[in-house]
Computed example of a mutant assay.
Amino acid sequence: MGAAALLRGPGPSRMRASLGCWCRRFRAASGGVAAAGSPVSGARSPFDRQLKRKQKNWAALQPESAKYGYLREEVGSSLAERLFDITKTFPLALDVGCGSGYIAQHLTKETVQRLFQVDMAENALRNTVETEIPTVSVVADEEFLPFKDDTFDLVVSSLSLHWVNDLPRAFKEIHQVLKPGGVFIGAMFGGETLYELRCSLQLAELEREGGFSPHISPFTDVNDLGHLLGRAAFNTVTLDTDEIQVNYPGMFEIMEDLQGMGESNCSWNRKPMLHRETMLAAAAIYQEMYGSNDGSVPATFQIYYMIGWKFEESQARPAQRGSATVSFRDLAKINAFISGEKK
Results as ranks from 00 to 15, higher is better:
337 F>R: 09
336 A>L: 02
12 P>T: 10
277 E>T: 15
33 V>S: 00
98 C>I: 02
284 A>T: 12
310 K>M: 12
95 D>P: 02
155 V>T: 14
198 R>E: 14
69 G>C: 05
304 Y>C: 10
196 E>F: 05
200 S>I: 06
64 E>N: 11
130 E>K: 09
307 I>V: 13
28 A>C: 14
304 Y>M: 07
191 G>I: 10
109 K>G: 12
341 E>D: 04
44 R>G: 10
279 M>Q: 08
177 V>T: 14
233 A>R: 04
139 V>H: 05
261 M>G: 01
23 C>G: 06
189 F>D: 09
194 L>K: 03
107 L>Q: 09
198 R>S: 08
314 S>E: 15
168 P>F: 01
151 T>Y: 10
263 E>A: 02
311 F>P: 00
232 A>L: 01
22 W>T: 06
65 S>D: 07
142 E>S: 15
280 L>W: 05
305 Y>G: 08
43 A>C: 03
203 L>P: 01
97 G>E: 04
249 P>S: 12
240 D>E: 15
341 E>F: 05
41 S>T: 12
67 K>F: 05
138 V>A: 05
240 D>N: 14
114 R>S: 15
68 Y>K: 00
14 R>N: 13
253 E>C: 08
138 V>H: 02
118 V>F: 07
205 E>C: 10
226 G>K: 12
220 T>D: 13
67 K>Q: 14
40 V>M: 07
56 K>M: 07
300 T>Y: 00
66 A>Y: 11
166 D>M: 01
294 D>P: 02
222 V>M: 13
57 N>L: 04
